[in-house]
Amino acid sequence: MLQMNNVSKVYQTEMVQTHALRDFNLQVNEGEFIAVTGPSGSGKTTFLNIAGMLEPFNEGEYLLDGVNVGSLNDNQRADLRNQKIGFIFQGFNLIPDLNLYENIEVPLRYRGIKANERKRRIEQCLEQVGLASRAKHLPQQLSGGQQQRVAIARALAGKPRFLLADEPTGNLDSLMARQVMELLEQINRDGATIVMVTHDSELARRAPRNIQVVDGQLADFTLYQGAQTIKTASGV
């Protein structure tokens, strides 16, 4: 589903050149749930941004569903994000002036989905994250965990096959974090491929496959094996 071959990303600022990713190689298959860990500043977010076509990369090749992302123009990338990818951010990134219903509606409107179909999907997604009764609330009226669930509903509403989450539980306490994780696992069982960056090693361990980014590169293959073992052990 996702394939990166020797992808490199360099940030050029006035003073320094940062190699955020170097010769990054990764293959993600349909239906996987991958937890990405690594030290701060190692390039996890950069990887996620490139995977989600939020920023360009300098070298290498990135295929998403067989489409060479490097050859797409801005509109094509926007459309592809809208159709294939759901984003979940550490800061939730709900739009403060829109109520929950309208927030979830945003990507659906960009896709040009008709009003009654939008309504059906939004209500279904709100139901799924357990916030159906709060559709008219504004984000600031909710707790962090609830906000993140709305963000997940927004990511789900477009029925993306690929969910990218950057420290989705980073701003949440452990109870809420576990709820969000359970939600993601449920979504993964329903068929979506998930790549989740996290600091929380306990949560990471719950993911069937773990990868570690160190200094802009995929590190330690053994973790992958370890994850495999857990996967087998849990009988999934």
């Binding site: 939020l54 801005d74 509109n75």
Partner: peptide, 9 residues
Amino acid sequence: TRRALGARK
């Protein structure tokens, strides 16, 4: 965020 969610320029 809107751009990430699929808004064209």
